[in-house]
Design a protein around this nucleic acid. Structure first.
Lengths: 160, 160
DNA sequence: ACATTTTCCCACTTTTACCCACTAAATTTC
DNA sequence: GAAATTTAGTGGGTAAAAGTGGGAAAATGT
């Protein structure tokens, strides 16, 4: 059974000259015993990396494998999903070393944003992350209304 | 029973003047005792080569043979499958020598990308591999939704 | 028998992992 | 509330591992 990590939080971490960043203490607590915990990191199609605790990654792959790769679309999707996939782990100072190939994503950047959600951690450069905020709050509110329909309206930006 | 290799990782390897590349240490560990392990390498229909540990190759062939007597088209398929298939192994420095005939795929290239997925290893030239990313992120997100159903919509590139 | 290809071996370079030491921040203690 | 102690985060030297290159012996094929 997969542990329920209940990860949460947004963290600013710094990337050192060797391409390492420290797992914030807040996440370490949630992850439990990280002595033998492996992670998988991948480059998805979005402009960020995703970090999975090993058991979570395996669950995702299992879902992927339900579909036959004889379907060319499934094959293409799977190939893209596996793109940049690498096994990583924490060093003795609780840091993660970004694989060489994924460092290009974070090239020349010394600061990264981690966003933890339930059982995955997204890794963004600050500039890419800020782009998310360029969307006016009202657009998200509208989107939410569209998706979740007739829930009672709740003001995102309450009237001053 | 076929060992469950659980291969994972994307590696950049360099092809030397003799057409050899080294099996990355990360994969060697997963493959276990490679002293007597043989591999089969073949050119598929996609623009990459596929490398199978021997037991995995045999499983594939067996699945193919289940049907080959029944349908002449399957036989034709099997023949194509075998074409370009070569047995290879690791040398004393854990390198694989690309068979002469398959070197044309990787001709004039000094860098290859290996992508390991569960029990097979794909071998790409960098340019071909990068083409995967030419597909816009939205397309993958949409494909994922189509394949795996009602995933929650999450704006990849939020509306302007 | 000769030329080409493959394999083995050794030496070298680069990268990674481990370790230790340090600074900064937060928390506790008196 | 200032000093002391613990916890969080950073930086870098160094030994070990990973990866590279090429000479030369062995094998292969014509």
């Amino acid at each position: 059974m997969i542990p329920h990590y209940g990860l949460i939080g947004e963290y600013e971490v710094s990337l050192d000259a060797k391409g390492r960043f420290r797992m914030p203490a807040g996440l370490l607590k949630k992850l439990g015993d990280t002595d033998h915990l492996q992670f998988v990191i991948r480059q998805g199609w979005d402009p960020h990396l995703t970090l999975y605790p090993r058991p979570v990654w395996e669950k995702e792959i299992e879902a992927l494998n339900q579909r036959s790769e004889l379907d060319p679309r499934v094959k293409q999707y799977a190939q893209a999903f596996w793109r940049g996939a690498n096994e990583v782990s924490l060093d003795s100072a609780d840091r993660i070393q970004l694989p060489k190939r994924l460092q290009t994503y974070a090239s020349q950047v010394s600061k990264l944003i981690l966003t933890a959600r339930e059982d995955k951690i997204e890794i963004w450069t600050e500039t890419e992350y800020d782009k998310l905020l360029e969307v006016p709050a009202e657009d998200y509110a509208a989107l939410g209304r569209e998706l979740f329909g007739n829930l009672p309206a709740y003001p995102v930006n309450p009237p001053a």
